[in-house]
């Protein structure tokens, strides 16, 4: 008996639709969020993550009715991130039905937000999302604003800082790998997973089922996140779970 590793399909949402980009650009439409979330739930997804990639604050609240609609039909954990700047933003998303809220850029510009949100709502619902780029052998730097701005922060140290401040989980995305379908940055994943005592979700670069398995077996991740291999019907979540279970990775099979 052991805690199962998780598979988390990720839905990038803007203007009420799910989209998926390559290296944070070139967005393609991939469908209705509620319909997709239901499909993943039926396939055995362990959680679902929504990233609100809406650029304008006007469009930001458009995600709330989507989360409400999904949460009334899908009874697995939902994480929502993107544009979270204040404790009030965290509250709005939790009230809409999110179980966890991802904080990315604002964790860098205002680390106190992580501490305040964790204190108020509990660490279990605060996920700090880290976008990291390889800058030297064994070194990764944190980037913000969807990957545009360098911060000078070391990704491993940053993850440790966030855990200390009260983050309950780290969502770790390799910007070098995101959208390339060439696998996770396993060195990055392993370095962060070994450095913190909170769960780490590997993200960015999944092209096939072995990539998911490697994220856990080689990268040491507690969960793996992927978008395009599931959205475009290359694989179902169920197939991915069977594949990983066959490699002795503990999986919740349905």
């Amino acid at each position: 008996m052991t805690l199962a590793k998780r598979i988390i399909p990720c839905l990038d949402v803007t203007a009420g639709r799910v989209v998926k980009g390559i290296n944070f650009q070139e967005l393609r439409d991939a469908g209705d969020p509620v319909e997709i979330a239901r499909r993943y739930d039926a396939q055995g997804a362990d959680e679902i993550t929504f990233l609100d990639i809406t650029a304008s604050s006007d469009g930001r609240d458009l995600i709330l009715p989507i989360i409400e609609a999904v949460a009334s039909q899908v009874f697995i954990p939902l994480t929502v991130g993107g544009g979270v700047r204040t404790v009030a933003d965290v509250r709005r998303l939790l009230n809409a039905g999110a179980d966890k809220v991802g904080i990315n850029t604002s964790a860098v510009t205002n680390p106190q937000l992580v501490a305040d949100a964790a204190h108020k709502y509990g660490s279990q619902c605060i996920v700090v999302a880290i976008d990291a780029k390889n800058v030297a052998p064994g070194k990764w730097e944190v980037f913000t604003h969807g990957g545009r701005n360098a911060t000078g922060l070391d990704a491993v140290e940053w993850a440790q800082n966030m855990a200390r401040l009260g983050a309950g989980e780290i969502l770790l995305t390799s910007m070098d790998k995101d959208g390339t379908r060439s696998g996770f940055d396993l060195g990055l994943t392993r370095a962060v997973s070994d450095a913190v005592s909170i769960p780490v979700i590997a993200s960015g670069g999944v092209g096939g089922l072995q990539d998911l398995a490697d994220g856990i077996k080689v990268g040491g991740a507690d969960a793996v996140l992927a978008a395009s291999i599931f959205h475009y019907g290359h694989h179902t979540v169920g197939e991915a779970k069977q594949f990983m279970a066959a490699q002795n990775i503990p999986m919740r099979l349905i």
């Binding site: 199962a4 660490s123 279990q124 309950g168 997973s193 769960p199 780490v200 507690d222 002795n248 990775i249």
Partner: peptide
């Protein structure tokens, strides 16, 4: 659970987060 390892060699994380039997 500090210092204890799971059956697959990975460390136990706290909080326990996820699906268990």
């Amino acid at each position: 659970l500090d210092g204890q390892l799971q059956a697959d060699g990975s460390r136990f994380k706290v909080p326990q987060m996820g699906w268990n039997r």
